[in-house]
């Protein structure tokens, strides 16, 4: 993904002896973004839309991208705890909206379960983290890593519109590299935490559950479990989109997020 503007800056803090890096742009209330299991592809148009009225900080979660690997980490909750410190040190933990994409949505939900004082809302986009009553979260081990990313779109054509017929080598490298870190954090069970529905049941933070209608990676049933577990959640489905809503339909995704925030 090519950078849309060159105005965003790179920031970094040290947490538990490790560098945690992020891209940041815009001004206004904070939106803190946690990326998918495949890593952060850089500054995407969705972030520009959000940055019009917010300070958007896109973290590389520890072990991904420019953030150093905690070799000892074994669970997304470990990452959530590190990020708890990181966003505090970055000064973006007040007047803040936490937005998690896919696997990053799981980490965001773990983080929200720690009752962050400055968290104004939680936005989970196609978030993993809980077991659906029916169906299963797609299993990465049965896909080539590029095929797995394709599965994130509603169709191969939608993938090609974003990444071209064949993704750039550095993106493939990112996806391959990132899935290794993800596999260090979730394996058994794959992509969910049986404790999480109980842990988030006391989270009063207003939550938007934003899902692509044709999500082939994290089925809508996951959103339904989140919706049933969280006391203050709203489910919104983006028509026609796949798992990677923010890439496939950035306008609709950004509109949903900004109007949710505006309505708080």
């Amino acid at each position: 993904m090519t950078t849309q503007t060159e105005t965003h800056s790179q920031i970094a803090v040290e947490v538990a002896g490790l560098k945690v890096s992020a891209l940041q742009d815009g001004s206004g209330p904070n939106i803190v973004v946690l990326h998918h299991s495949t890593g952060s592809p850089g500054w995407i148009p969705f972030y520009d839309q959000l940055a019009a009225n917010h300070t958007v900080t896109v973290l590389d979660m520890p072990g991904y991208g420019q953030s150093e690997r905690p070799g000892w980490a074994r669970h997304p909750r470990d990452i959530a705890i590190l990020l708890h410190s990181a966003i505090h040190k970055m000064g973006i933990d007040t007047d803040a909206h936490l937005l998690g994409l896919g696997f990053g949505g799981w980490v965001a939900a773990e983080l929200a379960s720690m009752h962050l004082h400055g968290l104004d809302s939680l936005i989970l986009v196609g978030a993993a983290g809980v077991q659906p009553e029916e169906g299963e979260i797609a299993d990465v081990i049965f896909y080539e890593f590029e095929e797995y990313v394709k599965l994130g779109f509603s169709s191969d054509e939608a993938y090609a519109e974003v990444f071209g017929d064949e993704a750039a080598p550095e993106l493939k490298e990112l996806w391959d590299f990132s899935r290794e870190m993800t596999a260090r954090l979730t394996w058994k069970p794959w992509m969910f935490n049986r404790q999480l529905p109980h842990l988030i049941s006391e989270v009063e933070t207003p939550t938007l559950l934003l899902w692509g209608e044709n999500d082939r990676v994290v089925p809508l049933g996951v959103a339904e479990v989140y919706d049933a577990s969280l006391p203050n959640s709203t489910l919104q489905v983006v028509e026609g989109a796949g798992h990677l809503v923010e890439l496939e339909n950035p306008q609709a995704a950004a509109d949903a997020v900004t109007s949710f925030i505006a309505g708080l």
Binding site: V140, I141, E144, D176, R179, E180, A183, R184
Partner: peptide, 9 residues
Amino acid sequence: RSNLQNLPG
């Protein structure tokens, strides 16, 4: 299936 040989990590 090369993805099975090439599991993450």
